[in-house]
Nucleic acid binder design. Structure first.
Lengths: 202, 202, 202, 202
DNA sequence: CATGAATGAGATTTCATTCAT
DNA sequence: AATGAATGAAATCTCATTCAT
């Protein structure tokens, strides 16, 4: 399910040493893309931070874009995994919502590059970018539909709600986690959850 | 419509011919920045589309970034003006909210470049980018605070709500207006407004 | 009929200065391609010899290949013009043949790069390369056909003869002009012409 | 068939396995050099086609050029052997000439890479390139001198004639064998031979 | 004001060759 | 002998910006 299926990699390393080098490059790429954006991120910068020669980049990636794409995919997978895991055994939709939101905030606190990388994706590979959001929306839709079916929520248009909730989370994350470099205070989470609870109530 | 606070412009043109040239360049820039993103947009491309010589760009803007900044400012102003105007004489917060939302959708339908330009701004001038959202948030905050004070809404943390509403609108606009190139169907707007109404109800 | 029809040029210079620069670059390119071959010829080397900045190359040619192509075309045109002019008012086929041969030798003595450039063309643009020879062959064919029709020559397969004569001239030119940097001695020319005379006699 | 005078090879393989690997590499090199030319041919491409690791190339050749040189030598030897063998027991110069020509056409039909490889040689190792032609010319000269001495041919300058004949053969081969991928039709060979016969007649 | 040429820094990518295993 | 990773120099090309006319 994860990035090993990514067929865009030039050639997956066959030795342990190779694997290590590839990881170093990807890690550096995450940093640099996050800091400078796709266009301003240069292979020189990436390889320097990874402490490898410029040419080594091309041992593992056919070009700049491929590394970027792999990064987006891998972050996207990581985020969805983290959020899914967070839901745990909760059953009430609202409890799941709260935990997911917190998991999301935690994830981006760890990977602050995510925001900037995803937003750059819009200009690098539009489909990739849309897919990122579509996939997250799908998660919301599935959860919401179940809850509606179970009579737990009002019978709203789940698509609209999914994108609304995603927008909320995204902007709260940007405002507090990204810009202030901290988890949002409880008051924010409580307010947001109350808003959601009532907005979706039957 | 555009306030001349833009102090980064070299010198505003004095002749009518100059003004026209400047406008042509800015219009071309909006197109090109929107299509290609800041980095990939080139002065050659902009001046070609504007049908002026490359050098003429520098008659009106000290550099690429200045033109971009002015564009962001001008779009930002335009958007806020449109939304404010839309509110009109409505008094109920919800009615204002609905009209604003629709005005927002209309504006970006006209200026689809707005999204892409604003998102590029993150990598060109971070302050500019944050300001764009902060200013819009301020508008929300003001309105919400009044409504809360008037007892029209529940006593929620207005900051959180402002960013949530902005996120909702932003994502719905992206999903329907930007990606599908149309105003969202009524069902979307209705669902969103119901959600807001109940979420904010006392 | 000449290179002004070459549509591959990025943009023909509009000013006198521009025209001069373009010429300087082409002249340098002829040198460098001739000395080093297409692949080893670098834009740096070309622009240095032309005493212009690297970027200026791209003001006049979209890429390395375009400059090369134009060069081949222009040399090809030059050669054919020189040979045609040399024939002058001679009427006997053999006299024309002798003058053409000498004109050919003179031309390549002036443009020793021609050989090497044309041979590189095989790897740069195969059609271009073939055209070069086909066009020259055409010239031979036309002349031969007339002479045959006039009963001046034996009724041989003109195509075969054309390519044979071209091959002879090419190799004699390579052996004496190119490698020894001199016009072939009279003995060579006389022998060759005697060979041709008898070989083609009725 | 290949003489091991190639002193530039690192060390000839001692095991059978080694010999096989070396051959695989050379065969691949012939292909790749023929298709892409010397500069564009890459070691990666060669070793991939030979199904060996990149490093293995350097087990058998000190560098790219050495492999190329060996290839040229080996093709050159092969060609001369084939042509010599074809002459067989013929005694008339013209009969020998005809058989040689046909043998030449046959050889290049089998080794179409020959042309392209030899022409690349001009830019890789000029001496090698000249030697290739000089050696072939020598063969012609020897044969012609004998025929002249035997009173079979007119007393022409054999050097000039040798290079002329070589040029003819080369161009006919290029035009029909290389470009049309077939042995030249009989009419071509007959015309060429008639031309030679009369041109060289006493 | 407007034009278009000129500049040169910097970016991506390729590839022969070396080296550790 | 063979493998595949690592290296780094060099090449092509782009483009914001400056300048002469």
């Amino acid at each position: 399910m994860n990035q090993l299926s990514s067929s865009e990699s030039k050639s997956l390393p066959k030795t342990a040493r190779g694997r290590r080098t590839r990881e170093k490059i990807l890690a550096a790429a995450e940093q640099v893309f996050g800091e400078l954006g796709y266009e301003r991120a240069s292979i020189v910068e990436i390889t320097q931070r990874a402490s490898v020669a410029q040419g080594s980049f091309y041992t593992y990636f056919p070009n700049k874009q491929a590394a970027f794409t792999e990064l987006v995919r891998s972050l996207s997978d990581g985020l969805r995994a983290a959020v899914t895991a967070a839901a745990g055994t909760e059953t009430s939709r609202l409890a799941v919502e709260r935990r997911s939101l917190i998991a999301f905030f935690n994830f981006i606190l760890e990977h602050k590059s995510l925001y900037r990388i995803v937003r750059q994706a819009e200009f690098v590979d539009e489909e990739l970018y849309r897919d990122y959001y579509r996939r997250i929306a799908q998660g919301y839709v599935r959860g919401l539909r179940q809850a509606v079916d179970a009579g737990e929520l009002a019978d709203l248009d789940v698509d609209t709600v999914a994108w609304s909730l995603m927008g909320m989370a995204d902007f709260l994350g940007m405002r507090w986690v990204l810009w202030e470099d901290q988890l949002p205070p409880d008051s924010v989470i409580d307010t947001a959850m109350r808003f959601v609870r009532d907005g979706l109530a039957r």
